[in-house]
Simulated scan of single mutants.
Amino acid sequence: MVSRRAILGGAIAAGIGGPLAVSALFSAAQAADGLPVTVVNNTGRFANTEIFMYIVGTDPASGQQGFVRSSARLTPAQLSDNGPDGFADLAIPLAASGPTTVVLPKMSGRIYFSVNDKIKFKVVPDGAGRPALQFPAGWVASDPSFPVLHDCVEFTFSDAGMFCNTTMVDMFSIPMSITLTGAKTQIAGALVDGGRDKIFAALRAVPEFARLVVGDNLRVIAPGHGIEAGLFPSTFYDSYIDAVWARYRTTDLRITANGRVFTGRVTGDQLVFDAGVAPFRKPTTKDVFFCDGALAAPNDGVTGPVAAMLGAGFNRATLLDSPDQPVGDPARFYQGAVANRYSAAMHASSVDGKAYGFAFDDVVDFASFIQDTAPTGMTVTLTPFGSSG
């Protein structure tokens, strides 16, 4: 299964001309060359003319970053794409009314949407001197696109099929869902009625998380980024981490991954497992929220899967609930004072209970991720905003 982490690994490598008429992007004859992606505006608040679309990502063969400007073709990014203002206008305006359809080429990347203003992409040299795209960072106050209402879905479209998700790993702003058709019809990311309002209300009700809400419900940023911005306590998880380390100093922690059971105990200041798993040093609160640092997951089939289970156990606050991980009952997630309330709010407002509230949310299949090995079409629906924002 291709998770969000695998999608991002192939799509966004960097720190990431003019608008194209929608009519030039699609015809039935071109569908065989790519995957038709239809955008439906059900926001209930914004007209099509107020919404812009962007398709950006990476060519799987060359690794070159680029953007979609013509049907089923990824245009390589060039420094000359930057205009007089220093930014590249990669916006695709939606049709004046009704759905908009675009043919997606084989690539990994993101489909962004912005409202009332355009995202300010920039082409810069990467570490190897090749042109790369600078993507918006809605969690950084100095980012040129920070004031712009925007969000995205992620995907990998290849010979193996379509793998896609809605994501709140970095932030949440525009409610949207994905419908993927092919061997069957699947939907991901749909919120309950008033879901956007419910998310903001839930987070505003928790003092530590309230400061993550930007402006008048423009967006909410993930707590890891909140730590970086000085908006969230960097010690939030410390007491829970200490309790986990204390418990498993005298108790076995058993993690089942890839059909194997790995047994670990804390020795010194490291959580040490058997069967070739690399030891884990004691994580920080930031490591927990980012599922990185001490909880980084290498793509090795052994340490990586165990790291993912640990990251999920910390974020869902299940590691003290059971020595057998992962816990699969969502009723046991996010209990107690120390838990990822940001992720909890996303799941609570999702129709199917699935969301991408943190990077390892795909553990035991609770992520807003869908895939199809024989896709015939994809629809991204911008769903109702509710009363706020």
Results as ranks from 00 to 15, higher is better:
5 R>E: 01
5 R>Y: 00
10 G>A: 09
11 A>E: 01
12 I>D: 15
12 I>E: 15
12 I>T: 08
13 A>Q: 06
17 G>M: 02
20 L>Y: 09
21 A>W: 04
24 A>H: 00
29 A>E: 15
32 A>Q: 02
40 V>W: 05
50 E>N: 08
52 F>V: 03
54 Y>W: 01
58 T>V: 01
61 A>E: 14
63 G>M: 02
64 Q>N: 02
71 S>C: 02
71 S>M: 03
72 A>S: 12
73 R>I: 03
74 L>R: 13
74 L>D: 14
75 T>M: 11
77 A>F: 06
85 D>A: 06
87 F>G: 10
88 A>N: 11
88 A>T: 12
91 A>C: 10
91 A>F: 06
91 A>Q: 14
92 I>C: 14
97 S>A: 14
97 S>Q: 11
101 T>V: 14
104 L>A: 06
109 G>P: 14
110 R>C: 12
114 S>G: 15
114 S>V: 15
124 V>Y: 13
124 V>E: 15
128 A>Y: 10
134 Q>N: 09
134 Q>H: 12
134 Q>C: 03
137 A>Q: 15
139 W>C: 05
140 V>P: 12
142 S>I: 00
142 S>F: 00
144 P>N: 01
147 P>V: 03
151 D>L: 06
155 F>H: 00
155 F>M: 00
158 S>P: 06
159 D>F: 01
161 G>L: 01
162 M>F: 09
162 M>D: 04
163 F>R: 02
164 C>K: 02
165 N>Q: 14
167 T>N: 08
170 D>P: 15
173 S>T: 07
174 I>W: 08
175 P>M: 04
177 S>W: 02
178 I>P: 14
180 L>N: 09
185 T>Q: 13
188 A>D: 08
188 A>C: 07
188 A>L: 05
189 G>V: 04
191 L>V: 07
198 K>D: 04
200 F>V: 10
203 L>Y: 12
203 L>D: 10
207 P>G: 13
209 F>T: 08
210 A>E: 07
217 N>G: 05
220 V>L: 02
221 I>F: 09
223 P>H: 01
223 P>T: 00
225 H>A: 04
230 G>I: 01
233 P>V: 07
236 F>D: 03
241 I>S: 06
251 T>I: 05
253 L>D: 12
253 L>Q: 12
254 R>L: 10
255 I>V: 13
261 V>F: 07
262 F>P: 13
264 G>S: 06
268 G>W: 05
274 D>W: 06
278 A>Q: 12
282 K>N: 05
286 K>S: 09
293 G>C: 09
300 D>R: 02
301 G>C: 03
303 T>W: 05
304 G>N: 06
304 G>H: 09
306 V>G: 14
313 G>F: 07
315 N>C: 15
318 T>D: 05
319 L>E: 09
323 P>G: 13
325 Q>W: 10
326 P>M: 00
327 V>H: 11
329 D>V: 09
330 P>H: 11
338 V>I: 14
342 Y>G: 12
343 S>I: 06
346 M>C: 13
348 A>N: 11
349 S>G: 04
350 S>K: 02
351 V>A: 13
353 G>L: 00
360 F>Y: 15
365 D>C: 00
365 D>H: 01
366 F>C: 04
367 A>E: 03
367 A>K: 00
368 S>I: 02
368 S>A: 15
369 F>I: 01
371 Q>K: 08
371 Q>S: 13
376 T>M: 01
377 G>V: 01
383 T>K: 05
384 P>R: 08
385 F>L: 13
385 F>A: 04
388 S>P: 01
388 S>Q: 08
